[in-house]
Amino acid sequence: MKRHNFKKLQIWNDSMSIIDRTYKFTCSFPDFERFGLRTQMNRCSVSMASNISEGSSKRTDTHFAKYLDDSLGSAFEWETQLIVAYRQNYISEELFKELEKEINILQKKISKFIESLDI
């Protein structure tokens, strides 16, 4: 297996964009969410990119795929948290739809990348 440079992977760059956006919009959440949904969404977004980068250091595609699976799981977890934020009126419908589209695209890209590996 050829090791991947995570910084050149589109899925890593897309997940970094989600991190930036997440930190930006979660600061407007109510103060009582400081250690709740705000923290959870921030950590979850970081988990997506972190698992991609950590997995890229593994010696086999099988091991890399496990980390990509974890990243994909975090992407679905983050989508659920996005829905919660919208249902609690912490974000606008416009932002919700935009971010939902973005996370769905990332989920598909990660899934396709996993399928492309030699496992």
Rank of each mutant, 00 (worst) to 15 (best):
F64S: 01
T39V: 11
S56C: 15
F64K: 06
K109F: 00
A85L: 02
C44S: 07
F35G: 07
S17D: 15
S74G: 06
K109Q: 15
F29R: 07
Q88G: 06
F25M: 02
D118V: 13
M16E: 08
R87C: 12
D118A: 10
L99P: 00
N5F: 12
Q81N: 06
L68P: 05
K66R: 14
T80K: 01
G36Q: 08
E33Q: 14
S15D: 04
K8Y: 08
A49R: 04
C27S: 14
Y67K: 02
I83V: 14
R87H: 10
I110H: 00
I52L: 12
M16Q: 14
I105F: 11
R87V: 08
P30E: 09
K109S: 06
T60Y: 05
K7F: 11
I83P: 02
T80A: 12
F113T: 04
G36K: 00
G36H: 04
T39D: 15
E33D: 11
S57R: 14
S53N: 13
N5D: 15
M48A: 05
R38G: 09
L9H: 04
R38P: 02
H4T: 03
E79V: 01
K58V: 00
T39W: 11
I11F: 08
D14E: 14
T26I: 11
K101P: 00
F76C: 01
L9G: 04
I18W: 01
D70A: 13
N5T: 11
I103D: 00
S92L: 08
D70M: 12
S56V: 06
A65G: 02
L82N: 04
L37W: 06
N13I: 10
D14H: 06
M48T: 05
R43Q: 07
T60S: 08
S17V: 09
D20Q: 14
A49D: 05
E77L: 01
K58F: 03
T80R: 09
Q40G: 02
S50I: 11
L117W: 03
T62L: 11
D31R: 15
Q10M: 08
Y67D: 07
A85K: 04
N51W: 06
Q88A: 02
I103H: 04
K66A: 09
Y90M: 09
I19W: 03
I83G: 01
Q107R: 10
Q81E: 08
L99R: 01
A49E: 03
T80W: 13
S74K: 03
F96M: 09
D61G: 12
L82T: 02
N89A: 09
I52D: 02
K66L: 12
L68F: 06
K97Y: 09
R43L: 07
S92K: 08
T39Y: 08
S15K: 00
S28R: 13
I52A: 03
F32T: 14
